[in-house]
């Protein structure tokens, strides 16, 4: 009698398990289907993003996608809206209209999830100057909820990677510009994000340091999705697999560096000048 009920319970349990399994499978298939529909590898999707400051339209309905494994060079003259787009992706600025998703999270509805999955290096690399490098990185770990062994592992990975071991106990205020930028870079990489947004990462670095940063970007490019804004066009040549040129808040060109060079039959510098000047004159 007793074993009968036990058997029945067991059958019920197995049946429930089966139903649960089928549901799980369907959800998984649906997710795969959705991803396929939206382009599987698109880690950043920007849709008609627009932002104005008073009468000035900084970003005018910009849309593009970036896939995993791509390094996007984001070019444009000063005041073109590069930094504004990046700030919106980092959920620091709120767009007037349009939206974007990063790793499937919407910047308007899920800003915290977005910030968890990106590493953002702001222009001019703002840091807390009164802290030591170690304290600062530990603060970032606190804020990103990296604890215990995981914290030790991330610090051990990131500190040599950005070569800041020698200044680890130094106050940030006393560091040179190059070191400050490397500390900033360490901050963006500490949680090993899937998406990197770097606003002029090599600005103010000496040629050796520039080379190191480019190497670093190249090394990471396969598993990550990286957006780099820069004014140095040789850098685009060195690290980027795709370029977008933007001026006055609008995308002028979306291509690869090699294609651009072929198309215009000249160096990237000249291509940049031709494209941005032509459009400015036409406008």
């Amino acid at each position: 009698m007793h074993s009968d009920t036990e058997q029945q319970n067991r059958k019920k349990y197995l049946k429930n398990e089966k139903i649960f399994f089928i549901i799980k499978k369907t959800v998984f298939l649906y997710k795969v289907f959705c991803r396929a529909k939206h382009g599987e590898n698109n880690m950043i999707r920007i849709e008609k993003l627009r932002k104005s400051f008073g009468p000035i339209v900084a970003v005018d309905e910009v849309s593009f996608n970036v896939e995993k494994g791509q390094v996007l060079g984001f070019l444009g003259p000063n005041g073109a809206g590069k930094s504004t787009v990046m700030k919106m992706l980092a959920c620091f600025l709120r767009p007037d209209s349009g939206t974007a998703t990063v790793c499937g999270y919407d910047i308007l509805t899920d800003p915290i999830k977005v910030r968890q999955s990106i590493g953002y290096l702001a222009e001019n690399v703002p840091l807390y100057n009164e802290m030591t490098v170690g304290d600062f990185l530990n603060f970032v770990c606190d804020a990103r909820n990296i604890k215990g062994k995981e914290r030790k592992r991330s610090l051990d990975r990131v500190v040599p990677m950005c070569s800041i071991d020698s200044v680890y106990h130094q106050t940030i205020d006393t560091l040179s510009k190059g070191y400050k930028r490397r500390v900033g870079l360490a901050q963006t990489l500490i949680h090993d994000p899937e998406v990197l947004i770097l606003d002029e990462p090599t600005d103010g670095l000496d040629p050796n340091q520039k080379h190191e940063v480019r190497e670093l970007i190249n090394r990471m490019s396969k598993e990550k999705c990286i957006i780099v804004s820069t004014h140095i066009l040789e850098e685009v040549d060195a690290v980027c697999s795709r370029t977008i040129i933007i001026s006055k808040g609008k995308i002028l060109v979306d291509s690869t560096p090699n294609k651009l060079k072929e198309q215009y039959n000249c160096s990237l510098d000249e291509v940049f000048r031709k494209i941005t000047r032509k459009k400015t004159v036409a406008a």
Binding site: C91, F92, I112, I118, P126, L127, Q187
Partner: peptide, 14 residues
């Protein structure tokens, strides 16, 4: 003034 607010509010902090 320093701009570190951009750093602070691009970390997962509301």
């Amino acid at each position: 003034r320093v701009g570190s607010i951009e750093l602070l509010l691009s970390l997962p902090i509301t």
